[in-house]
């Protein structure tokens, strides 16, 4: 046996492998920088464009007619109302369905079907949800309404909440359930008093993530809640919302409108990012404790 048959550090085979390794590592660094670069770029432009228009009048004045100054008050209020209602409609259904999947029917046939369908709904195109609500609410009633918008967003909330509720309840140790059962607690009370408490932070996280998800949704509102130039809290009338106003204003030729669109975009982004950070910190503190 001579040394030549053993690949040494200087052999072409080994150096080739090392080179490939180095190239791959460099590419991975570049890819990460590229990915993070977009985040910084988008947030940077958003801050730069949006912060100039951020003033008190944004929160106190109505959306202006073309060419005039104004604010986003009616859109902000509309968005808040629609979002709160969507959460009120969607969350109970989502939590109950998630409870069924995790507690009553963890292994039965219905659950596996529901789980699969729920995952599909979770990533279904939101514009299709808008069409669906248009067909079942707007078309029969004959007019666009805030209710329709809230229902459309609720349809988006449900799968998010179902998913997180199930995941979080599954994490609750079975010994807790067995302890509750051993002192004679019926299943419903065990779930409400033991399992829900143990999983509370996680379930709240799910709801926050759902709110983050819907607060920027535009597509399902376009032909359900539509838009409204004026202040309105009447749920059976068309209702303005921040994303739809941004969409309309950004595509308009008027500079004031475009400026307001940037400001609105900044507001939404701050809301969404804040919600996701809060949601994340909730689960993080739970894990570490």
């Amino acid at each position: 046996m001579t040394n030549t048959t053993i690949a040494t550090a200087s052999s072409p085979l080994y150096s080739g492998r090392r080179r490939r390794n180095a190239i791959a590592k460099t590419l991975a660094w570049i890819a990460t920088a590229f990915g993070l670069g977009w985040l910084i770029l988008i947030l940077g432009v958003l801050l730069y464009q949006g912060i100039g228009g951020l003033s008190l009048s944004v929160f106190t004045e109505m959306t202006p007619p073309p060419g005039a100054a104004g604010g986003l008050l009616n859109a902000i209020v509309g968005s808040l109302i629609i979002t709160v209602l969507a959460v009120l409609i969607g969350t109970p259904i989502g939590i109950l369905a998630g409870t069924y999947l995790a507690e009553y029917g963890r292994h039965d046939k219905l659950s596996s079907v529901v789980r699969f369908i729920n995952d599909i709904l979770l990533s279904a195109p939101s514009i299709v949800i808008g069409l669906f609500v248009y067909e079942i609410m707007v078309a029969p009633m004959g007019h666009f309404s805030g209710w329709a918008g809230a229902v459309a967003l609720a349809v988006i909330v449900i799968p998010v909440v179902v998913r997180t509720t199930e995941d979080m309840l599954t994490l609750v140790p079975d010994t807790l359930r067995e302890a509750a059962a051993s002192i004679g607690l019926p299943r419903a009370l065990m779930i409400m008093r033991i399992a829900y408490r143990a999983a509370r932070a996680g379930i709240v996280t799910g709801i926050l993530l759902a709110v983050a998800r819907i607060s920027g949704e535009t597509a399902p509102l376009l032909f359900t809640a539509l838009n409204n130039q004026f202040f309105s809290v009447n749920m059976s009338q068309p209702m303005p919302s921040l994303p739809v106003v941004i969409f309309q204003f950004a595509l308009s030729p008027y500079e004031e409108w475009q400026k307001l669109a940037w400001t609105g975009a900044l507001l939404i982004t701050i809301t969404v990012l804040a919600l996701s950070v809060i949601a994340r910190s909730l689960t993080a503190s739970r894990k570490s404790s």
């Binding site: 977009w38 985040l39 988008i42 920027g216 950004a250 939404i268």
Partner: peptide
């Protein structure tokens, strides 16, 4: 977070 940014922000940008 990049995944959480609403699509309308990408649109306007």
């Amino acid at each position: 977070l990049l995944a959480g940014i609403p699509s309308i922000i990408y649109g306007i940008w």
